[in-house]
């Protein structure tokens, strides 16, 4: 028999999704379209062919990284809102490495250096938090704009394509592309890298002394300090790792998907990552599945926009509704559990 907790999670999450769909369905009604046929297109289009299914995982890949980035600092009770900026720094590094070394060697070098560059960028926030008690929420958020403008600046100067027409780099040499893991799709090695990253993060957090200390600081900084842990060092290291994870998304998007860097590159994966991390309650394995869900909605939504004449932004709305209801459902579950315990006590003792 399924235990009651699991049953609750399934029921509440199911209703959260359904309610999200109903509300966005009402939005579709306002556009004078039939929501059933629109949703029909949404779901059928997700699975219409192998290429589209592959696309779901392609979209999920960078989300896994940015969600992990948020979750990692979240465990230390820190808020890294700037995964978007760390992703840009990682992207700049990946594209530079790949342009300088136009061979397969570029891939491992880009992976290492993007991690380090994103980590360094994130590390600044950790240091300012640790040394100057700066508000990491604000700093990480504002640093995104610095990174964005740094990228735009580079795209108009030294990284600009040789013709000098568009703010984008040259296309990367084919040898520097991440290889495909499923033929006839765009699904590339980056997805495997993302899964590995999620598993590694889980192992670090729940199996190592270092991860233990991060969680201890996150849940009770004072008790951790009294146990000899230096919270300041934990802040810095968590931010370095968090920034590094977001930086890796740069490799998967530059070397795996776009094969170049251009202005306005994936502008919302940072924000989505935050939502996904919360949806998965910060659990690295849960993040994989939540990212795939959002990848699917995104892919389906894009096609739906093309086929039904409904603006694809309705899918963002739907993602938002689902997210709000999922968060509410967490509290509903807690209430149910409490009532159940109460009832047991009443019956057992009357």
């Amino acid at each position: 028999m399924m235990d009651k907790k699991t049953r609750d999670i399934l029921i509440t999450n199911f209703f959260a999704v359904v309610l999200g769909l109903i509300l966005s369905g009402i939005m579709i009604l306002f556009l004078k379209k039939n929501p059933f046929s629109v949703f029909g297109i949404l779901f059928s289009s997700m699975f219409r062919d192998g290429y589209t299914i592959g696309e779901i995982f392609v979209k999920a890949t960078p989300l896994i990284f940015t969600a992990l980035a948020f979750a990692f600092t979240f465990k230390a009770n820190l808020f890294n809102i700037g995964a978007q900026g760390q992703f840009y720094i990682g992207s700049i590094t990946a594209v530079s490495v790949s342009l300088l070394i136009p061979s397969a060697l570029a891939i491992p070098v880009a992976i290492v250096l993007s991690f380090l560059a994103g980590g360094l960028w994130g590390g600044f926030m950790g240091v300012s938090k640790a040394k100057f008690k700066a508000n990491e929420f604000l700093i990480s958020m504002m640093s995104t704009y610095v990174a964005l403008n740094l990228m735009n600046y580079l795209l108009r100067t030294i990284l600009m394509e040789s013709k000098g027409e568009y703010p984008q780099t040259e296309s990367l040499a084919k040898s520097t592309w991440l290889f495909k893991i499923v033929p006839h799709t765009r699904l590339h090695f980056g997805f495997i890298l993302a899964i590995l990253a999620a598993v590694t993060v889980w192992l670090i957090l729940y199996r190592t002394t270092f991860g233990f200390r991060i969680r201890a600081v996150g849940q009770n900084q004072e008790a951790a300090r009294m146990s000899g842990v230096n919270p300041e060092i934990i802040y810095i290291i968590s931010f370095i790792i968090s920034g590094g994870l977001a930086g890796l998304a740069g490799v998967t998007e530059v070397n795996g998907v776009q094969h170049m860097l251009l202005q306005g590159f994936n502008p919302s994966i940072g924000a989505l990552g935050i939502g996904i991390a919360i949806l998965a309650n910060g659990n690295p394995i849960g993040i994989i599945f939540a990212s795939i869900l959002f990848g699917a909605l995104h892919v389906g939504g894009t096609i739906m926009g093309q086929l039904s004449g409904v603006p694809s932004s309705i899918i963002n709305l739907m993602e938002g509704f689902v997210m709000v209801f999922v968060i509410i459902s967490y509290f509903v579950r807690r209430k149910w559990e409490m009532n159940r315990d109460k009832k047991l006590l009443m019956e057992g003792n009357v």
Binding site: R213, A216, Q219, N220, E222, A223, S227
Partner: peptide, 19 residues
């Protein structure tokens, strides 16, 4: 405040000073 991490389990709390 100083002695335990309430949302961790007992063995983790035991480990707190020995990490």
């Amino acid at each position: 405040r100083y002695g335990m991490v309430m949302d961790m389990n007992l063995s983790e709390n035991m480990f707190l000073k020995a990490s």
